[in-house]
Design a protein around this nucleic acid. Structure first.
Lengths: 195, 195
DNA sequence: GGTTTAACATACGAGGCGTATGTAGAATAT
DNA sequence: ATATTCTACATACGCCTCGTATGTTAAACC
């Protein structure tokens, strides 16, 4: 790769890292682009050239975090004994990851407000497609009832992410986590052919 | 009531109405307080005196819309044949109401980003408490399995609101609505003792 | 080695929020 | 009834931030 492209890639990564920290700590609206670019050793010129505007930078940050979440959930699901257990494990993984304040602030709160509904994001779509694929397999095997797989996947993912948001703002998240996971698993079992 | 208090109440209502329109049309961040107060025939002075800051105004608007939703859901639930049907009907009512672009933008997108997790809002708490109460009754009657009622209520409400967000940004919301409601009802049935 | 190109920096303008101060009219007391 | 106080709201000011338009330096290419 040419020198210019590598340097540009490095600067992009610097900016995303600085933005990720700033957005997490102060929130999207309160984060100053002058400050976060300075922290990365650059100026707003680099930012606008690479990402177009503030929204574009947030989109890049969201995409990075969201991809990390998807990868983690997939790896957790792969360790499960069967497909149904994998589905539940992925849901639990989402809840667990979404307890991170950084994920909360950037992906669950500012992301939707600035970028619109998460189901439209490229990375979130991958999560949805993954869950959808697992559900379709479970339906084909007669384990899960026949429903619209996309709607079902959306409901499960939405419930998991919302649960994390609720948990995080509860008095004692760690104490509530087991009960929440239990309720989530029970809810998901509504899709099973035999309860 | 004194003349001053009545005029003040009228102005508060004017400002909330103007803000509701502005926030719905342009979003919270893009809405100018100079413009929306001028549209109400007032200035920013009235706004800061009544609501403290921009956040306070959003909180008032969110509270109004959220209360309307809670009232509607309750009235729909009251018409149902039994408690379980009431629970499902309330969920459907939430999904239906949340399809309104005004509700989407203000309550589901900007609200959480600016005011934090909805479960902490006074009005949203009432919704949650209502669902929770219904669930507790269903548990006492042996219709619903014993789980943490608060977590269960949160999961149901969260799934419903998220479903509306997803529906609204889908290609054909009206066509997807029945399938979504079907999936939602199936999901909720996971809480039933006998499937 | 000269020219072009593009990545980034610098400079500028517009607009918005929050606060500090000003004002008019209602409430209260004598 | 009148004077005073109080308060709901208006006006004025300053600071900050974003986006763009222009400048500059270094890599890429002929």
């Amino acid at each position: 790769m040419s020198i210019r492209l590598t340097k540009m890639a490095e600067n992009r990564e610097k900016l995303i890292a600085a933005a990720r920290k700033a957005f997490a700590q102060q929130g999207y609206a309160a984060a100053s682009m002058d400050n976060l670019t300075a922290e990365a050793g650059l100026t707003r010129g680099a930012l606008y050239h690479n990402f177009g505007d503030k929204r574009g930078l947030l989109a890049a940050v969201v995409d990075q975090i969201d991809s990390e979440m998807a990868d983690y959930a997939k790896s957790v699901g792969a360790k499960a004994g069967n497909a149904w257990q994998a589905l539940l494990a992925e849901g639990a993984a989402y809840i667990e990851k979404a307890l991170d304040p950084e994920v909360q602030r950037i992906v669950l709160l500012d992301g939707p407000a600035v970028l619109g509904d998460p189901s439209q994001w490229p990375s979130q779509n991958r999560c949805l497609q993954s869950t959808k694929a697992t559900l379709e397999q479970l339906m084909a095997n007669g384990i899960v009832k026949a429903v619209d797989p996309e709607a079902a996947a959306m409901l499960l993912n939405g419930a998991a992410l919302n649960a994390a948001l609720w948990l995080a703002s509860s008095a004692n998240p760690q104490a509530m986590l087991p009960k929440t996971l239990e309720a989530f698993n029970l809810l998901a079992s509504g899709f099973l052919v035999k309860g």
